[in-house]
């Protein structure tokens, strides 16, 4: 008899649970505002959830983009870059024009590799291993060691090692902005810049700055701010805490003032169209 009572009471619990789920299913706003739009955008996206755009998946990216459409041109969706008609539909859906060129990110190496070797290194041929050994065999502890970790990581073989200078060289045409190399470099030398940028800053100054009395190679930035002063179109913004110049590619007219005035020639032209790799 008691068992029957127990069965009935447990059944009552089951009923309450079902009711709870049902009420929550009804009460919670079924339609998140703008969910329809998010669905629409999500259908356009490749749906690979690869995460290259830095979001937790295509739907999360669609959610963010539907909130502020300008994001579409900053985040890279490598799959999307290929087909233009999807980008057109996305532009209609978002009501904003997507600048595919700046959306198409490129990897930039912040080092010209002119600091000389302290000792010749014959250990494990990988930058990670070499950088563990007292920060690498170059005079500057944050210079590019040129042992090819990024080269091995790059799926589109856009990175090769320049023989005499011993640093990585990035072929901007092949580079698809997948950012796989960024994580591989132990010295954080590579970061992704917009495909539109015109001037490249070839020194890993922001990392070295923390080390007092650091050694500089003759191409290292002396943080003299001449480029900042010289730029007439104020396309250069001086990043205070990192004490490095940052370039606003929209305002830059490629007048070349900053590149000419830089005493240690740390600045270079980046625009692949003008000079593929002007050293």
């Amino acid at each position: 008899m008691q068992l029957v009572a127990a069965i009935l009471l447990v059944a009552l619990i089951g009923l309450l649970c079902g009711l709870a789920i049902y009420i929550v299913y009804i009460r919670v706003p079924h339609k998140v505002p703008g969910l329809g739009k998010i669905d629409e955008i999500n259908k356009l996206l490749p749906g690979m959830n690869c995460g290259a755009c830095g979001y937790a998946g295509c739907f999360a990216f669609a959610q963010e983009v539907s909130r502020n459409p300008q994001l579409a041109s900053q985040a890279t969706c490598p799959m999307l870059l290929g087909n233009d008609e999807v980008i057109k539909q996305l532009e209609i859906a978002l009501g904003v024009s997507i600048d595919t060129e700046s959306m198409n990110k490129k990897a930039m190496l912040h080092c010209k590799g002119s600091s000389e070797n302290l000792f010749d290194y014959s250990g494990v041929q990988s930058c990670k291993a070499a950088s563990l050994l007292a920060g690498g065999f170059k005079r500057c502890p944050y210079a590019c060691l040129g042992l090819g970790d990024c080269m091995r990581a790059c799926k589109y073989d856009a990175i090769s090692i320049d023989g005499d200078k011993g640093i990585a060289v990035i072929d901007y045409v092949k580079c698809t902005g997948c950012a796989l190399c960024v994580r591989e470099c132990p010295q954080n030398l590579i970061n992704m810049v917009s495909g539109r940028s015109k001037v490249s800053y070839r020194c890993n100054y922001s990392e070295i700055r923390v080390i007092p009395g650091r050694e500089r190679c003759n191409n290292g930035c002396t943080h003299c701010r001449k480029c900042f002063v010289a730029c007439k179109y104020d396309a250069i913004i001086w990043n205070k805490e990192k004490a490095v110049p940052e370039f606003d590619s929209a305002k830059c007219t490629l007048c070349g003032e900053c590149v000419a005035v830089c005493p240690t020639r740390t600045l270079e032209y980046f625009q692949p169209a003008i000079s593929p790799y002007a050293v």
């Binding site: 929550v24 998140v32 998010i38 937790a56 998946g57 739907f59 959610q63």
Partner: peptide, 25 residues
Amino acid sequence: ILVIATLVQIMELFIMRTNYGLYSA
């Protein structure tokens, strides 16, 4: 286990509707 399943189902509905990024993660 019935109670736990119900609680999780309710929480899943909440997370799905409020922050889809986390949900897909």
